[in-house]
Design a binder for these strands. Structure first.
Lengths: 193, 193
DNA sequence: CCCTATCGACACGGCACGTGCCGTATTGAC
DNA sequence: GTCAATACGGCACGTGCCGTGTCGATAGGG
């Protein structure tokens, strides 16, 4: 998405993304407009349109630029503890300001704009999924996780409940809540085991 | 939301909602405008604004009117089979046209508009949750489900994975996929049991 | 040092918003 | 059956933002 080759160019790009983030935090993504971003950044509208084709993709770039390193996985050897630590981190990031409300808005935008949905998947969800699967695969080979467990489902099963709470019921997600969900998942629902 | 007391009033209300649904299916929710709905319904804009305060809430009413009875639970005595049947129904409804794309748009709108989020919860999610908890509570008392299982989490744990697939990865959700998720949930992830 | 791509500023037509106003049609109270 | 109140369709308005076009200024690479 970023075009700027020259030093001035990348500086402008960064300025625009920062302006977009600032405005989104202050007034909410719903009220974000390209014109307002341009004014805030002290930039012509063309300079924005030259870099991003839509408000949604500008916003996605802006938001991801806030957490470049991504959510990395610890590997202490204890997969359960690692998983718990990682989900706690994810929930802390995605569930609280400044990311929380902005991330919710981004997912909302993805429901209206296929380009945003695709980019969100490729740039954020997929890498996250890959890391998770890699970590669990290692654990599976060490026998810490049932061999029969379908790792392709793991993101949906592990992250789904958190996304449900974030996007649908919109209840705050505490570490305790995460722990209870994990316990439910690992214990299973069936009686006697 | 509906004000119309007189016969003419309720007829207008229905006409407007049908126009909104038709337009949303044809052009997508993103391109839906109050003006277009008014024109399609052969109605003045005031007549819409008198009934609904926002596009989102009009759309929510319209969509819910498509499935008034809601998703009811079977009770055959076998909770696992019932659960499976119910989730299959839910996935068939929420994951396919005409509901599927419209429901995704509604959830997207809920991320931008707190009023829509609240109404979606109260009018659709909450009733669904209550039915699910009631059914599982009965099963729990019959020992078909572990006594320790936290029923307050049940919607997040059971529905979360489907919502993740619907809203985030946007992959189609087959019955087979549902079954694999349920199997993963009931079997748990931990080895040996 | 000049050439060219990029820039900020401004203006434009277009669309949809939400709100008035008007004259008409329907409704409910009496 | 009459009549006042209400709801209605149609129209127009001012506003905000869209995405594009056109300037002259600017700045960085060859």
């Amino acid at each position: 998405m970023t075009i700027g080759h020259s030093e001035r160019g990348v500086a402008r790009t960064r300025t625009i993304m920062q302006a977009a983030l600032a405005l989104a935090q202050e007034a909410g993504y719903a009220k974000l407009s390209i014109e307002a971003v341009a004014a805030r950044a002290g930039v012509g509208k063309h300079t924005i349109y030259r870099r991003w084709p839509s408000k949604g993709l500008l916003f996605l770039d802006s938001l991801l630029s806030l957490n470049e390193p991504g959510l990395d996985y610890p590997d202490t050897g204890d997969v359960l503890a690692d998983l718990r630590r990682q989900i706690h981190s994810a929930v802390d990031l995605l569930g609280n300001p400044p990311w929380g409300p902005l991330y919710r808005a981004l997912v909302g935008e993805a429901q209206h704009d296929p380009a945003v949905a695709a980019a969100l998947n490729e740039r954020f969800i997929r890498p996250q999924t890959d890391k998770t699967i890699a970590r669990l695969k290692a654990a599976q080979e060490q026998g810490q996780i049932s061999r029969g467990f379908d790792l392709d489902l793991v993101m949906a099963v592990l992250s789904g409940p958190m996304y449900f709470s974030l996007l649908i019921t919109q209840e705050p997600i505490s570490h305790d809540y995460v722990d209870r969900v994990l316990e439910a998942l690992f214990a299973g629902m069936s009686p006697r085991h």
